[in-house]
Structure formats: structure tokens, C-alpha cells
Design a protein around this nucleic acid. Structure first.
Length: 559
RNA sequence: UGGCCCGUCGACAAGUGGUAAGUCACAUGACUUUGACUCAUGCAUUCGUAGGUUCGAAUCCUGCCGGGCCAACCA
């Protein structure tokens, strides 16, 4: 795995988080910004994670601060080393360097335990013998206050003894918990004597069987943030109700420098499921081929499809940071990669649905090449010599026997420019028994080569081509989200990705793999279709195309 | 139905008492060796809603409506 260059830089824009930091810096509450990204290693990072990364790593970068990666691995039954590795790889690919260090929440288990003991000694926590069901009943409801646990008044000595024995493995799972003494009548359920520690005889991916009690998120996370010197603990909005508990833990343990938690709305994208739980379900049920299945919104899947870190961060930035629930149009993501590839990606011609085209006045013995720009927007990209001959393939869709109005491509007795080469005129076309066109017979304006016509006539259309002699048949992965969606038409915004996994749409997957005839592309080379055969039909102009899809992604030639 | 958070163009989102930025999408026109790209133009008399305060309100107050989160020994 090679480290990519940092992609978070320069213009990070502005948002309310930065306003808060500005104020903290100005008021002297904070002198050095320190943030963290705390994924639980229970799944692969997705584009929603990229938002969290961008915000936290971006804040550190913007203010010359530190950014930590911390694996939030306090629940041994859900976590695995596979995910740790994938997270590291994805973060590295993104170029979000954890300049503050890489940490594991589980490495703080010892401190967590000591702080819990301290809380007991301070009379702020107790060992509770209520079962899970009993605790739920005693907790009350959203509208009714809870009742104090009968174990709430245990002596410090008894609590200390019991907690020590919990740690030593004397009690079975679920038999006891350590709870904070806060307020059973709080309107915030998180404050009704929340569980701080639970008994769980399970092997931890990193700690092994060293522990059989594990700290809960609210307790452990606050401690981790405080110990690492995090100044701004940025998380998504569902943790808003947890902030009072976060503050309670920090206050009652008595950290000198207390981290502050701020929340922002998580990223939602149209037609995309972003819940790690559902994504894992898709993988484990075999509904997709894996975490990097191109239909997944994971970073590894986006990477496989040719998305770049900078395009993902650009998308996140454009989508904005706010607290309002929102669903960002996936077309904004597509715009971001299109924008970048349009500037950078080298062009290659590829014919997906070939039809033979013979230039009848082109000498069979003749062979020549035409220099074609690798990227018309970037002169420094240079040109490549593309072999030309009298026998070519063009896109079947670039010829119309009976063209609609405003047709600019090839038609009987019509002229068209072969990209970077001659202007040709179609004189005849050959059909098979079924009426399918099998060959086009054309003549070229051999005097012009790839210049303007000598007589000044206008030829509006230009089409791409490959020479039959040098073309290589190849399989290209045309994984593309929009392409997929267009085949399950009329899915309303907000439709869950899962809903696409119905029998009708499963066939889409097969269509994702297309045979392409490529000119001048080497195996392993990443390329972009100059134009590919899949356009969305424009209902207002039948037979024309409203959108070129190929600029959305780049593709890697397999084999 | 308790508490907290949130409602600004089709989608995001600035704006935080002085008279509605920007982007995506969309539409039209120009340009074009790919109908792409690029360029130009258009796209919220109005900020969920009803009142109130004010010379003046998207911004402050109140009610109502709508959405999200919370009753794991998950994170």
C-alpha cells in the first residue's frame, strides 16, 4: 500500500464548526486544535466516513493542529482486525494523515478501570444487580421518570469489592453492571444512571481475554478524548443527546482540560444506504460481492470505480456541514469526479457496440497514424499516434438509417468527422437477414486528413472509431452508479439502496460488464471513455442523447 | 404523548435585526474535431406557518405544523 499525498488542503471553506473553533482560539479557550476520527472497526469506511474525516482532519489542518486516528474498539464482539486494516488503508488512500498519532480505544482499558474505581470512591458510581429487563423497567419511559435502583445506595466498600470481582471474572455475563449515579428522573434518558461497565466474557481482537468487563461508549470515549488532549470532539448529530453525559464524565473524573463535543448532520446521499449495519448485511448475505463491490458506497468501492480522494473531499465540501437533516443528490458526487477527470483523465477511444465501417477509397496497402490529443484540455498531456486504416469499427449508435431531426452523426449520404482523422461520407449500408446493419461503406475526403475541408463546408458531427487491425477486444468494468440507477428507472429520491436488490435490478449487475473494443489502451491502464455507448435518452429529442455518462468515472482495463 | 435538535429555490447551503450569496440540477442561446467541455442568460418579491416586538424580521418572542434523535449491559 502506498501512501497517497494529502488531499485535504487549501480552501476548506467555512462552516459552523470552524466558527466555533475560531471563537475558541480567539477567546483563548484553546491554543492548539486537536481532533480525532474514531471509527469502530466493525466495518469498512464509506463516503459518510469521509465527511467525518474531512471535517476533523480538515479542522486540524486548517488551524495547524493535530489529528488522531483512534479505533473505537470497546465492543469485542463486533470488531475485527480485518476492519482495522481496511480503515488504515482507506485513510491512507484518502491522504488524511493522522499527524497526532494512531490509537486504540482498548489501549485505555486500564485507565478506564482506574477512573471507574475513582468514581466509585467518590460515591458517583455503583454496582447494580438489576437484570437487563429489570433495568429497562426501572428506567421509566420517555414520559415517565425512572426509579432509583435498589442497589444505588450500596456502600463504597461493597461497590469496590463487587467491581473488583467483576473484573476478576467472578460473575457471569449480564449479571451486574457499573452505573453512574446521575438522575433517574432526567428527561434525557442517557442521564438515568447510565451503564459505565458491563460484564462480557469475550475475546477482544487486540486485548485477547485480558478483560471480561468492557467500558461503555460514553464512558470510554470521553476518557479517550481527554487523555489524548482532544479539544474538539466532532461527531454526528445522533450523539447530541449524549453530550450531557459526555460532559458529566469529563467533569466528574475531573480532567483539567476538558474536551468539547460538537455535532454535525451525517451525510445522506440519494439512492444510497449509508448505514454500516446494512452494508455489513449486504456483504454477509452475499447480496454483493464484498465491501468493495462497486455498488457499495464504501471508500474501497469508490476507489475501485475510479473515484479519487480529491473528488470525494470536494463533494463533501460542496455538500456542506450543518445540523439540518439532509439528503445530498448523488449527482453532485458525480459532478465532482466528472469535473476532475475532465481536467486530468487521458482520453482513449473505445467502441462498445461495434459495427464495421469500410472506407472504399482508402488504399488497402496504406497505413498511417494520426496524432490525437490525450486530453484536449491539457496540452501537456501530449498526443498519441492512433493507427488508421480503411477498415474500422464505429459505434452502432453513431449511424442512423432514418435519423431524427438535428441528427449530427452518420446517416446515409451524410458526412461526419472521424475523430482526429478524415471526414467520411456514408454511401451504402449492408443489412443481414434480420435487418441489422452489418457494414457501412463510406468514402473519405482524403485531401483533408484531419484538417478543415478545403471548400469550407461545415461538417458538424464527429464520431469515434478504432481501426479493425489494431483494436483489442477487452473487458472493461463499467461499474457506475448512475448507470445502475437508470436501469431501475423511477426510483424516487431517498429510495434505499437495499430496495434495489430486487429480482428486476439484479440483472443490472450483469449489464455492468460490457465487452469493449479498445484502441491504444494497455492492460492495467486507467482510462476514460471518450464516449461510450450508454447515454440516457432525452425524451424531448428521440434518438439524441442528453448526457454523456463516460466522464463520470475512469475505468481500468482488466487483463 | 417528555426532552433535545432542525425547518431558506427540485437538491445542498450562506445569511444571526437593515431589506435573500453560491453550488448541483434544470431551461435557453453561443461555441465546439464527439450533442461533451466551455461561455452567456434564466431560475426564492420570499425564508414551514400564524401572530407579536420593531422605523425595519429569514434573523428576536409566542403558538401551531412538519422532520430527526433518545427508553442497548451498541457505537
Amino acid at each position: 500500500m502506498s501512501a497517497s499525498t494529502p488531499k485535504i488542503d487549501g480552501d476548506l471553506g467555512s462552516n459552523f464548526i470552524y466558527d466555533i473553533i475560531d471563537a475558541d482560539l480567539a477567546g483563548g479557550a484553546v491554543t492548539q486544535v486537536h481532533t480525532r476520527f474514531p471509527p469502530e472497526p466493525n466495518g469498512y469506511l464509506h463516503i459518510g466516513s469521509a465527511k467525518a474525516i474531512w471535517i476533523s482532519a480538515g479542522a486540524a489542518m486548517k488551524y495547524g493542529g493535530l489529528f488522531n486516528l483512534r479505533y473505537d474498539d470497546t465492543n469485542p464482539v463486533r470488531e475485527d482486525d480485518e476492519y482495522v486494516r481496511s480503515i488504515e488503508e482507506d485513510l491512507n488512500w484518502l491522504g488524511a494523515v493522522p499527524n497526532g498519532g494512531i490509537f486504540y480505544g482498548s489501549d485505555y482499558f486500564e485507565q478506564c478501570y482506574e477512573f471507574a474505581v475513582q468514581l466509585i470512591k467518590d460515591g458517583k458510581a455503583y454496582v447494580c444487580d438489576l437484570s437487563q429487563e429489570e433495568m429497562a423497567a426501572w428506567r421509566g419511559t420517555l414520559t415517565e421518570p425512572g426509579k432509583n435502583s435498589p442497589y444505588r445506595t450500596r456502600s463504597v466498600e461493597e461497590n469496590l469489592d463487587l467491581f473488583g470481582r467483576m473484573k476478576n471474572g467472578e460473575f457471569p455475563d449480564g449479571s451486574r453492571t457499573l452505573r453512574a449515579i446521575i438522575d433517574m428522573s432526567s428527561s434525557n434518558m442517557n442521564l438515568r444512571d447510565p451503564v459505565l461497565y458491563r460484564i462480557l466474557h469475550a475475546a477482544h481482537h487486540r486485548q485477547g481475554t485480558k478483560w471480561c468487563i468492557y467500558p461503555m461508549y460514553d464512558f470510554a470515549h470521553t476518557i479517550q478524548d481527554a487523555l489524548e488532549g482532544i479539544t474538539h470532539s466532532l461527531c454526528s448529530i445522533e450523539f447530541e443527546n449524549h453530550r450531557p453525559l459526555y460532559d458529566w464524565v469529563a467533569d466528574n473524573i475531573g480532567f483539567a482540560k476538558k474536551p468539547r463535543q460538537y455535532e454535525f448532520a451525517r451525510l445522506n446521499i440519494t439512492h444510497t444506504v449509508m448505514s454500516k449495519r446494512y452494508l455489513r448485511e449486504l456483504v454477509e448475505s452475499g447480496s454483493v460481492d464484498g465491501w468493495d463491490d462497486p455498488r457499495m458506497p464504501t471508500l474501497c468501492a469508490l476507489r475501485r470505480r475510479g473515484y479519487t480522494p480529491s473528488s470525494i473531499f470536494e463533494f463533501v465540501k460542496r455538500a456542506g456541514v450543518a445540523k439540518a437533516y439532509s439528503v445530498v443528490d448523488i449527482r453532485l458526487l458525480e459532478y465532482c469526479i466528472r469535473e476532475e477527470l475532465n481536467q486530468n483523465a487521458p482520453r482513449r477511444m473505445a467502441v462498445l457496440d461495434p459495427v464495421k465501417l469500410t472506407i472504399t477509397n482508402y488504399p488497402t496497402s496504406q497505413a498511417e497514424t494520426f496524432p490525437i490529443p490525450n486530453n484536449p484540455l491539457d496540452e501537456t498531456a501530449g498526443t498519441r499516434d492512433v493507427a488508421f486504416s480503411g477498415k474500422l469499427y464505429i459505434e452502432r449508435e453513431d449511424f442512423s438509417e432514418d435519423p431524427p431531426p438535428k441528427w449530427q452523426r452518420l446517416r446515409p449520404n451524410g458526412e461526419v468527422r472521424l475523430m482526429g482523422a478524415y471526414i467520411i461520407r456514408c454511401n451504402e449500408f449492408v443489412k443481414d437477414a434480420e435487418g441489422n446493419i452489418t457494414e457501412l461503406l463510406c468514402t473519405a475526403d482524403l485531401e483533408t486528413r484531419n484538417d478543415k475541408p478545403l471548400d469550407g463546408r461545415k461538417v458538424k458531427g464527429t464520431i469515434h472509431w478504432v481501426s479493425a487491425a489494431t483494436a483489442v477486444p477487452a473487458k472493461a468494468n463499467l461499474y457506475d452508479n448512475l448507470f445502475t440507477l437508470e436501469n431501475v428507472a423511477d426510483a424516487p429520491d431517498g429510495t434505499n439502496f437495499l430496495e434495489y436488490l430486487n429480482p428486476d435490478s439484479l440483472t443490472v449487475r450483469d449489464n455492468c460488464k460490457l465487452e469493449a473494443t479498445l484502441g491504444g489502451v494497455q492492460p492495467g491502464e486507467r482510462f476514460q471513455f471518450v464516449r461510450m455507448g450508454y447515454f440516457s435518452a432525452d425524451p424531448k429529442h428521440p434518438g439524441t442523447f442528453s448526457r454523456v455518462v463516460q466522464l463520470k468515472d475512469s475505468f481500468k482495463l482488466e487483463g
